[in-house]
């Protein structure tokens, strides 16, 4: 877990609680990337739980540009952890502008959700997957009364955007979130 409040204080040399302004966002992103460069292959869990406000520009710098920047690093995926509704809205807005999607975990409920540009089929399949825990495409298709190909296409999209993981047998789930 990467505590963004700690990186924020480090980046600004001040006791700020809010992730606001582009220069601050870029500085925090730089510190997140430094942390990830030194780590073994891992999920990047960005902990927002101790952060106050997140504005749209900072969400763009910290999350959207990070998602685009981690491809050359030993990072399996970026997960936004411990977000409040207003923070989620800012991140959602920033990601959608880039056509990106990330998995987020809400602060109070620990409920997983998708933020960013999420096609309707992805959202529906993701909802079923969260209820089921893990699943192949077939059972989801049966539950939704969809074709397997349609479910498979949504699962492929969610796997490619690293919002869910798929094992060797083709079972999908949101993965271990610690």
């Amino acid at each position: 877990m990467i505590p963004l409040d700690v990186l924020l204080r480090d980046a600004t040399s001040a006791e700020y609680r809010n992730l606001v302004t582009r220069p601050t966002g870029a500085a925090v992103r730089g510190r997140v990337l430094d942390t990830l460069r030194g780590a073994p292959r891992t999920e990047a869990l960005l902990d927002f739980s101790q952060i106050g406000l997140v504005d749209f520009s900072c969400a763009d710098e910290v999350v959207a540009k990070l998602v685009a920047a981690v491809h050359n690093l030993p990072v399996s995926r970026v997960i936004v952890h411990g977000v409040r509704e207003d923070q989620a809205e800012a991140i959602d807005h920033a990601l959608a502008r880039h056509g990106l999607t990330v998995l987020a975990i809400e602060v109070d409920t620990a409920r997983p959700r998708l933020l960013g540009e999420v096609p309707a089929d992805w959202r529906t399949v993701f909802g079923v997957l969260c209820e089921q825990g893990h699943s192949l495409a077939g059972p989801i298709a049966a539950l939704l009364d969809w074709t397997i190909a349609r479910v498979q296409m949504a699962l492929d999209g969610l796997v490619t955007s690293r919002c869910i993981v798929r094992d060797a047998e083709g079972r999908c789930d949101v993965g271990v979130l610690t």
Partner: peptide, 20 residues
């Protein structure tokens, strides 16, 4: 309370327009 987060975001962005 749900109005407050967006209020702060809007205030921040409007102020940043000056800096940027």
């Amino acid at each position: 309370a749900s109005v407050v987060g967006g209020f702060g975001q809007s205030l921040s962005e409007t102020c940043q327009n000056i800096v940027e």
